[in-house]
Simulated scan of single mutants.
Amino acid sequence: MNDGSAFLNENAQRIADGMVRDAERLRLKVSTGTLGERLIDAGADAAGSIEAGLRMAEATMGGLGTISTVMDRASGKWPFQVEVRSSQPVLACLASQYAGWNLSGGDYFAMGSGPVRALARVEPLFSTLSYREKATASVVLLETAKPPPPPVVEKVAKATGIAPENLTFIYAPTQSVAGAVQIVCRVLEVALHKANDLKFPLENIVEGIGAAPVPAPHPDFLTAMGRTNDAIIYGGVVQLFVRGPADQAKELADKLPSRTSRDYGRPFAEIFKHFKGDFYAIDPLLFSPAEVLVTAIETGDTFRNGGADLPMLEKSLG
């Protein structure tokens, strides 16, 4: 697990290359930046698409996630859902997909996600994760409407030792179709991140699957951000398969759902306004799925807690 391979990055590079080949079908715009970096616009000036959002999510998971869509009539007003599963959930979600690298600079704000993070290893999270990679090319995903300016490209190049011409930046704003899809595809990732915050042994999480409704995109950033977060917080469901004692699995199931947070019970956009746009003032335990199942594979027990909050989805998703 710590052999210095380029597993996640090679997978993501393959997916990004496929996006370039299918750019017309996916409604993408591909260009080259001033430092030679490859830019894939999936929803800013480009129209983008649902499939582009799914490909973005696959790239951010380093190719270790299987993502599908479903129209589930039992879900009422929000039948369009994504399902994400991984047999390497810790690597896929925490070493790669989590948007934990601050790539802001000047008036440019963006959090970086994708396998490039396993190369840079500049986040506190990597004090927990021993995994590391070496690669000659990498992929960065940015939730933003603008391509990265040269100082950001240089920052990534310096931190990873990869020349700008071997870096691919895929970007799409939250307000776009692709942006909304790839954010909701993080339903499993938020469960893994919260499990880490709860000090559950990550090496004991061996399988994961999650699903959440995909809301309609909205032109207003705050509304769009609120909808994508609420889709997970009030409508997401995750099942984790874990090793270890059944009582540890039960404790995780009891603590993991979003309703255990002090900030649960209001639309995310409203919570964001209350804290004056300060993400770090929001209780981090809010960022988790609404419903959780934890299966202790060594005893055969499954523990369940939480549930979809339809009134809150009605308020947010409309």
Results as ranks from 00 to 15, higher is better:
residue 8 L to C: 08
residue 8 L to Q: 13
residue 8 L to S: 03
residue 14 R to W: 06
residue 16 A to G: 06
residue 18 G to N: 09
residue 19 M to G: 02
residue 20 V to I: 12
residue 20 V to S: 01
residue 25 R to Q: 07
residue 27 R to P: 03
residue 29 K to A: 00
residue 30 V to T: 05
residue 30 V to H: 03
residue 31 S to Y: 12
residue 33 G to E: 11
residue 35 L to E: 07
residue 36 G to D: 11
residue 38 R to H: 08
residue 39 L to C: 03
residue 40 I to Y: 05
residue 44 A to E: 07
residue 51 E to S: 01
residue 52 A to G: 05
residue 54 L to D: 01
residue 54 L to Y: 02
residue 58 E to S: 11
residue 61 M to L: 02
residue 64 L to H: 08
residue 65 G to K: 10
residue 68 S to A: 09
residue 68 S to C: 13
residue 70 V to M: 13
residue 74 A to G: 14
residue 74 A to M: 14
residue 78 W to E: 14
residue 82 V to I: 14
residue 82 V to A: 11
residue 82 V to P: 07
residue 83 E to R: 15
residue 85 R to A: 01
residue 86 S to Y: 05
residue 87 S to Q: 10
residue 88 Q to D: 14
residue 90 V to R: 00
residue 92 A to R: 07
residue 92 A to D: 06
residue 94 L to D: 00
residue 96 S to M: 07
residue 97 Q to Y: 09
residue 100 G to Q: 11
residue 100 G to I: 13
residue 102 N to E: 05
residue 103 L to E: 06
residue 105 G to A: 12
residue 108 Y to G: 10
residue 108 Y to A: 04
residue 109 F to M: 13
residue 117 R to V: 07
residue 120 A to G: 12
residue 121 R to G: 01
residue 122 V to K: 08
residue 122 V to H: 08
residue 122 V to P: 01
residue 123 E to R: 10
residue 124 P to R: 04
residue 126 F to Q: 00
residue 127 S to E: 15
residue 127 S to F: 12
residue 127 S to W: 10
residue 128 T to A: 02
residue 128 T to P: 06
residue 129 L to H: 01
residue 129 L to I: 08
residue 133 E to Y: 11
residue 134 K to Q: 09
residue 134 K to P: 09
residue 140 V to H: 07
residue 142 L to E: 01
residue 147 P to W: 02
residue 149 P to C: 00
residue 150 P to D: 05
residue 152 V to H: 00
residue 154 E to C: 00
residue 160 T to A: 00
residue 160 T to D: 10
residue 162 I to P: 03
residue 163 A to Q: 05
residue 164 P to D: 00
residue 164 P to E: 03
residue 164 P to Q: 00
residue 166 N to D: 13
residue 167 L to I: 14
residue 168 T to Y: 01
residue 172 A to V: 11
residue 172 A to N: 09
residue 175 Q to A: 04
residue 177 V to F: 03
residue 178 A to R: 09
residue 179 G to H: 08
residue 180 A to T: 15
residue 181 V to D: 03
residue 189 E to W: 05
residue 193 H to L: 04
residue 194 K to W: 00
residue 196 N to A: 02
residue 198 L to G: 04
residue 201 P to K: 10
residue 203 E to L: 10
residue 204 N to F: 02
residue 204 N to D: 14
residue 205 I to E: 00
residue 210 G to C: 01
residue 210 G to A: 13
residue 211 A to V: 14
residue 211 A to R: 13
residue 212 A to Y: 11
residue 213 P to K: 05
residue 215 P to T: 12
residue 219 P to R: 08
residue 220 D to V: 03
residue 224 A to W: 06
residue 225 M to H: 10
residue 225 M to D: 07
residue 225 M to T: 10
residue 227 R to N: 10
residue 228 T to K: 02
residue 229 N to H: 12
residue 231 A to I: 14
residue 231 A to K: 06
residue 240 L to F: 13
residue 243 R to Y: 13
residue 248 Q to R: 03
residue 254 D to M: 11
residue 258 S to F: 06
residue 259 R to A: 03
residue 261 S to D: 06
residue 263 D to T: 11
residue 265 G to R: 10
residue 269 A to L: 13
residue 272 F to D: 05
residue 273 K to G: 05
residue 286 L to W: 06
residue 295 T to W: 07
residue 295 T to K: 15
residue 297 I to W: 04
residue 300 G to A: 12
residue 300 G to F: 14
residue 300 G to Y: 15
residue 302 T to W: 14
residue 302 T to S: 07
residue 304 R to K: 09
residue 306 G to L: 11
residue 306 G to D: 11
residue 306 G to I: 14
residue 309 D to Q: 03
residue 314 E to F: 04
residue 314 E to K: 15
residue 315 K to H: 02
residue 317 L to S: 05
